[in-house]
Amino acid sequence: MARILGGITTSHIPAVGNAIANELFDDPYWKPFFDASPPIHGWLADAKPDVVINIYNDHGLGFFLDKMPTFAIGAAHEYRNEDEGWGIPQLPPFPGDAELSWHIIEGMVADEFDITSCQELAVDHGFTVPMQLFWPKLGEDPNFPRAIPISANTVQHPIPTLHRALHFGKSLRKAILSWPRDIQVVVLGTGGLSHQLDGQRAGFINTEFDKYCMEKIVSDPDELTRISRMELVEKAGAQGTEFLMWMMMRGALGERVNLLTKNYHVPISNTGAGTMLLECTE
């Protein structure tokens, strides 16, 4: 039977990809952020997950406003990135697990979640930066897991509610756990925390709210579902709505989790950057 070992959250700022490419790990600006990674590398080296479910939000590479899925699941044998308009380097393709993807899609649609399935999906920095962060050697790492991208819409309102996001995760968990093969799975929730890129309020960061979210996501995610979407925009910034990905991840981890590591640093680029490793107890 498939098992979910834990979840990892991180911000997925494009600048992180450049910092990795330039090996700025000890640079004074970057060090407090990159210091979050070694304990996670250690945990992953022991856990050796077979599959990573990477929950991120597309930023206008895989999807356009012509057709905007609220929840999309990759069902491809591999996923490629593209330069996104500003010349991000091309990475080797990420191997997928299309059979497991279809199992998840079947399970979740039967569970009454309406999913958009994607047999082709270009993955952007929201997906690739966390992969580079946690598996720095990517495909050259013998333990590099197969990846399944899941993207939720935060580009255009209406976006899903926090309640729906948490329940998405719970349904995803049921679907994964019903996979008959013995595989180990980790779930990433990427994006956030508070930031706003657009408007006169650009540069908005709310450390108090970020810290509240990082606390409650561990102990009481249900409390977070009381936050309305407009309240989320107000408190986390217009792009802080990416916190939805964290809620989706959290739902997939079961009721109780152990917090293994936690790091919060402001700013990375325009963003409050949160990194957490949560281990499942069930």
């Binding site: 356009f64 593209e82 308009g85 255009q156 309102h157 209406p158 408007g199 407009m230 925009v233 217009a238």
Partner: peptide
């Protein structure tokens, strides 16, 4: 929310051509 434009259906209709052009810049 001061200094914040919520990008919803109204904005999506208004900006479709502009956003479509910008989307093309992925290539």
């Amino acid at each position: 929310i001061p200094g914040t434009t919520i990008f919803d259906g109204r904005q999506a209709m208004k900006g479709y051509a502009l956003n479509k052009m910008c989307y093309s810049f992925n290539s």
